[in-house]
Amino acid sequence: MNAILECNNIKKSFGSKHALTGIDLKVERGRIVGLLGPNGSGKTTLIKLANALLVPTSGEILIDGKKPGVETKKVVSYLPEKTYLNNWMSIQQIIEFFSDFYSDFNSEKAYDMLKRLNLDPKEKLKNLSKGNKEKVQLILVMSREAQLYLLDEPIGGVDPAARDYILETIISNYNENATVIISTHLISDIEKILDDVVFIKDGGIILTSTVDNIRDEKGKSVDALFREVFKC
């Protein structure tokens, strides 16, 4: 099987701003990968490229060997950093929406998770608190049986208990054909569930390694290494 995500010298510029300066990356299936870097390093740009929300300035990005498009959107499940839900639907209606458009969407799973988080499906999205909106978005994303999950700052604005729940959900969702890429700058929380980490700085990759290698060879946690590498 080919790699689920492949980047060949990807560059992306916005006018004079160079967001990605040449990314080469290969991510295999069945891995949980951390895309780690400070704000503005290019993590979100890279993820948007994988989602066909942006087009590369040069270079090639392939999902499951294909260029980003309708076919790849079917197998990619994306959790953006922002809340993107419309405000007139209820939770139930957005679940039906996802179920309608994504053939790999598992409604049962979604309702299960809703129940566990004490969210009422009949509640209107616009009445939810920010934290609950984020939880709903996570549920929608994780209820898809996708091949690639792209989570942009999933634990950012969330309380510690919810963070644990999110990490638990990611682990329990794991299957050896799917890959999860988590972009974040909050590393100590998620380190232990990551297989691999990619350090990205100023639009370029400065390190790729497995978590265990880092701990083995450098005798410190990924979080500690990160602080060292990205010291201001």
Binding site: G30, R31, I32, D164, L167, E168, I171, S172, Y174, K192, I193, L194, D195, V211, D212
Partner: peptide
């Protein structure tokens, strides 16, 4: 493996 990984809050691969 998956249950044990969940219990320990670690990656199933690990």
């Amino acid at each position: 493996v998956r249950d044990m990984a969940q219990e320990a809050s670690v990656n199933p691969n690990t």
